[in-house]
Design a protein around this nucleic acid. Sequence first.
DNA 1: CACTCTTGGAGAAACGTATCTCCGAAGGCT
DNA 2: AGCCTTCGGAGATACGTTTCTCCAAGAGTG
Lengths: 360, 360
Amino acid sequence: MAAAAGVSITTVSDALNGKGRLPDETRSRVREVAERLGYRPSAAARTLRTGRSGLIGLTVTTYGEEPFTFTEFAYFAEMARAATSAALGRGYALVVLPASSRHDVWGNIALDGTVVIDPPDQDPLVSELYRSGVPVVSDGKPGNCPVTAWVDNDHEAAVLGILDHLSEAGARRIGLLTGTSTDTYTRLSTEAYLGWCTKVGQEPVYEAYPAHDPAAGAVAADRLLARPDRPDAVYGLFDPNGTDLLAAARRYGLRVPDDLLLVCCSESDVYAATEPPITTLSLKPRKIGTTVVNLLIDAIEGVDSGTGVDIARLFPPRFRTAGNGPPPGTLMPTELIVRASSQRRSPRTTVSPPRPPGEV
Amino acid sequence: MAAAAGVSITTVSDALNGKGRLPDETRSRVREVAERLGYRPSAAARTLRTGRSGLIGLTVTTYGEEPFTFTEFAYFAEMARAATSAALGRGYALVVLPASSRHDVWGNIALDGTVVIDPPDQDPLVSELYRSGVPVVSDGKPGNCPVTAWVDNDHEAAVLGILDHLSEAGARRIGLLTGTSTDTYTRLSTEAYLGWCTKVGQEPVYEAYPAHDPAAGAVAADRLLARPDRPDAVYGLFDPNGTDLLAAARRYGLRVPDDLLLVCCSESDVYAATEPPITTLSLKPRKIGTTVVNLLIDAIEGVDSGTGVDIARLFPPRFRTAGNGPPPGTLMPTELIVRASSQRRSPRTTVSPPRPPGEV
DNA sequence: CACTCTTGGAGAAACGTATCTCCGAAGGCT
DNA sequence: AGCCTTCGGAGATACGTTTCTCCAAGAGTG
């Protein structure tokens, strides 16, 4: 377009990007012509030249044959929404890419960085990205992956907070509805529960089921309440557990909260309208999504080119451990939304602060 | 990488893409070296050269200040998930881009095509994309936009089916909970309701509220049941209407389905577990998402370069109208999942077939 | 032997941008 | 008058592919 419009090609680039030293008159003239011609600079050429695509990958773990959980749990949907919004605010767009997608799709996209949700140990995808010099920030503390940074909730503190809350409400034997998969969330939460049981001298009462199978949840809830050592309070780790447990309680003639105290982890507000309303733990996916993306973009824009070493210098000291240690991580607080199902008095809301970073 | 590995640059390209005429021995040798070096061809360069990025935009309409509804209604989440999966299956990735995002973000991304969800009349974004030669397929029949193709439910048939269903169940006065926005879904559904009322001689009984405001839905549901001409059956156009209406009915001491028949449009399975279970209309977002993406990719891969004229020839005759008329559209069937809230006998499931394309 | 045909692969152009270097001209200074 | 500095902008190169054209050598044919 350039030459035809008024003059040369360098001038167009400079005028449109505000780079060179041109009189305002020339600048505005070039812009006006570009506008009139509907000229759009080629994103591909710009990406090739600058090495920046403005694209961020969002990788979601995949369970079973379905492409991904994405919307299966409200957590992911909320998190993705917040992440998209945050990225857009800084001029980046999100590409959603299941970890399972074939290599040719991943390889065919110029990514400035990647957000990885709950990477499994030794995730080959993360390793390859890291080797390629692509910054990776994970949602969920990574097991053994070389990520640039990570963000997570303090799951241990959250579970302990809930168990204490239920104890205060009068629970004598607290059960857990958990998952069979080995992701960080499930593992840390379950470990926290078991540790608490040991500490207070309660025999653990829990049922585990494959969390990605919606039917299995109802069965597990039923099983939990059918046990001879039936708990008088239950915490369910997954979103649908609340309704499942409520239905199971109804089947066994248990009144909530009188005979059974109930808490589940969920981002859904349907639990404000159930009968009775159910206390939920929110993992604050919006905050997590926003933080993850901002951390990632900081890394992208801060480091010049793929040495991958200077990145740590970008983060404030509170985010990183000393020297050449593990990647910097930050813990986000969770929020317990107390409703009728877990108490006999009036509701209130508590926020669990993260533990100091030193203990991470 | 090329020259260093074994030999020249053309050969590498040919070997990796299976293009030229090379002996298998050379091919495998080059591939092996590439593998060892961890060589990845530059997506940016390829895009620049071939004009194909493998990227598809997914544009979601935005309500108010929140970036987009995306997850607000399960419909969008499901649809996006199916679309992502379908795109991935054909080697494309999805970039999620709110229509409201600033121009510089849109312009900075090389898109092979775009999926637009429910474009408003005269959408400037769609017009610009179309002019740029980027294929656009919309979910929702476009009002006055030059799209390549579109996919939608037969909303009129769906509403009429529900009204008939409620009539058969004994409803004498059917109310509607609808929205104040002017999107196609709301408009067509409301018009179908009003038309039906005229035909059967019933006075319309409806309340409209801003669908993006979750609190307003509960208020509107309450208002509808508080009217002097209270309906004995209600259809709610939006996902949360079911629980809202159920709560309102409870407040007024109305038994469902005895005093009030209930149906709402929702993709959520929580309505299978409510008390009583609520009949829902599913718009089949999975099917829509899949179809939209496949149509779009057909258009992308079928037309050589942006004339934008030959595209219609790609579609089977049933998808297009004659000559130079409106863009080809296809209607997907909806599914009415009949549960206890709308009948006094045993549930069954009916599928409403789309009307013949001639009447589009 | 002179020729054509096939095989295996190299050379070079082009995609459209950003950026580095350089150049002419004009003005100010000694 | 000669020199330095700034202004406005042009030229050239590189980014890493894909693809079109072309070439050399050997094999087959008369």
